[in-house]
Amino acid sequence: MSRQRELALIAGAAGLSLAAAMLLRRRAEDLRRSDDAPGRTARRLDFGGYRVDGRTVTISASRADIYAQWRDPARLNRIFGGTLGLRQHPGDRFVWTIDATPAPIEVETRLVEDRPGELLAWRSVDEAEIDVEIKLQLRDAPAARGTEAEAHVAWRPRWGLAGHYAAWMQGTDPGRLCRQALKRLKMLVETGEIATADNERRDG
């Protein structure tokens, strides 16, 4: 086979692949437009440069009760379970700490929305180490099951896809931290304690 013919074949295959990819993407976008699924469940990893993750948990308690738990710093630190920390600075500034390896990551945020019993939202400040937005939304659950608490996080991982997978491997990706925090919140509100298989207290 001549060199020219080889090049033509490679170019043809690349063109076909590109066309197929574009078709699949357009199809996925069309499908997205035609359903009612939450946006973060879309079959894609990238949302305009952001990763998006979240979880909804139904908790047998009122929205007001759950909101109050989330605004109590002592309770929050139990809910975050040691991997995540949150402390309030003067004004509406909050610093989130992720216990990552090799060094903890601190992200400074501003509380950008606070509607008691409904919504809390934080946005990272311009100079923050990670560009992130975190939301906690509360709504009444159907069938008198209490409250649907939805945590939603959108972030730009440091070092892009590699950074995302590094965090995922460490168990410190924001999506996982959100899921775990919501589950601990549910345990604490519904049972008064956070389940552990440890036979000894770890916090002394």
Partner: peptide
């Protein structure tokens, strides 16, 4: 736990709150 949706229905082995996070 005895308190979650499943325990309230007697579905104790489906308890939402006893398996650690």
């Amino acid at each position: 736990c005895g308190a979650c949706f499943f325990c309230a229905q007697g579905q104790f082995s489906a308890c939402d709150n006893s398996n650690p996070v």
